[in-house]
Each structure stands twice: as C-alpha cells, then as structure tokens.
Amino acid sequence: MQAVTKAYRPISWPMKGSGGDTGSWRAHRPLVDNKLCSKCQLCWVYCPEAVIDRQEITIDYRYCKGCGVCARECPTGAISMVKEE
C-alpha cells in the first residue's frame, strides 16, 4: 500500500491565502499617510483580514480586500481610499 504523505491526506493546513490572492477583489486601495497617523492601532484591531502591521501601520496589498473599515474608523483621517487602476 502506498504511504499516505502529508500532501495527499484530505486535510487542510493553516496557511495564508486560503481564498486565493484576495487582493484582486479590491475596488478601492487604502493608502496610509504616515504624517497624519497617530499610531492608535484602531485600524489594526478592526481589520477583518489581519493585513495591517501593528507597529509600522503598513498594509499587505496581496490580501487586502479593500473594505474600507480602516479608513472609516481612523480618527485622524490618515487612511484614504483610492480607486484601483
């Protein structure tokens, strides 16, 4: 009998990008203005995708779905939504 390797088991493993490169779903791109940012981390806590870096406030555009929650919740208006090309 052929040995069942990890790849052939009918089990899923925790990995990023389980729904594909979800960044391609995005219609609007969030842009962070570091001059206005007060590092309050509200965007980080409300991001449903966990794509925002907590310390640097940078966004992983490969997986960001562009929902705009970060831009709406930002108290200083440092995040703006720009239409994708």
């Binding site: 990008g17 729904g19 490169d21 979800t22 991001c47 449903p48 995708e49 490969r62 779905k65």
Partner: peptide, 15 residues
C-alpha cells in the same frame, strides 16, 4: 485568523 481567507471584505464574523 490568517490573511487571505474566503470571507467577504469587511466581514464582522472574521473581525
């Protein structure tokens, strides 16, 4: 919750 899952953008459940 890992990035790039299959939920809608702005999903309150994954949030």
């Amino acid at each position: 919750v890992l990035s790039g899952n299959g939920s809608c953008g702005g999903c309150p459940a994954t949030m």
